[in-house]
Each structure stands twice: as structure tokens, then as C-alpha cells.
């Protein structure tokens, strides 16, 4: 079996197990107040981490400021004007990034 298929089969099992772990082990039970407050803050923390890593990381794991930063900044400017422009942010982000790369 090729490396690709070994990788795919392993990741099918591992991903399903990771996604099932929390719900199976502690599902349906209310947790103490401080834990719930921590959980409430996980979404903003995760999203911020994803934005930083996907905008500023090069393929070899260095911090870089390239065309993506311009695209994401343009999306941010749009969101300052229209907070609900989810799709607009995606289109502007990709278009400005492509434009800067083409220059």
C-alpha cells in the first residue's frame, strides 16, 4: 500500500477518535462555572490563532508578511464597514491576495 493510502486510512481513524473523545468522555454533564467561562472563550482564542497561523506562516513554518496579509487586511477593512459581510470578506480576501501576487 502506498504512503498516501496508509496516511489516509490512519487519519480517518485518528480524526474520528479525536472528534469523538470529548463528547463521549464528558458529554451531557454540566461543568463548573469557571470551566464553562473558559469554554466560552475558546472560540475567540481558536479563531485568532487560525487567522494568525493561516495569514502569516510560510510553508516552512516561518513568520512571513506576504500577499495574504494584504488580502486579510482588506477583508478586515470591509468588516469594519459591514460587520455581517461574511461572504464579502472571503471574496475580498482572495481577490486582493491574487491582485497583490499578480503585481
Amino acid at each position: 500500500m502506498s504512503d498516501a493510502w496508509v496516511t489516509i486510512l490512519a487519519l480517518i481513524v485518528i480524526t474520528a477518535a479525536i472528534k469523538a473523545s470529548g463528547p463521549v468522555l464528558i458529554g451531557g454533564r454540566p461543568l463548573p462555572g469557571p470551566v464553562m467561562r473558559t469554554i466560552a472563550l475558546m472560540a475567540p482564542a481558536l479563531l485568532a490563532g487560525l487567522v494568525v497561523v493561516q495569514t502569516f506562516t510560510s510553508s516552512d513554518g516561518e513568520i512571513v508578511v506576504d500577499a495574504r496579509a494584504a488580502g486579510v487586511a482588506a477583508a478586515g477593512a470591509l468588516l469594519c464597514v459591514r460587520r455581517t459581510a461574511l461572504l464579502g470578506a472571503v471574496v475580498v480576501g482572495a481577490a486582493v491576495t491574487a491582485l497583490v501576487r499578480a503585481l
Binding site: Q54, A89, G93, T97, R101
Partner: peptide, 18 residues
């Protein structure tokens, strides 16, 4: 990458973050 597709998700996550 020439189409800027790699910027689609960080832009989207930024929108959710806002």
C-alpha cells in the same frame, strides 16, 4: 495560489472573530 484561494479561510475566520 495565483487566485488567492489560500487567503479565503483566514479572511473568513477574521469575519467570525469580529
Amino acid at each position: 495560489d495565483a487566485l488567492g484561494l489560500d487567503a479565503a479561510f483566514p479572511a473568513f475566520f477574521l469575519a467570525l472573530l469580529s
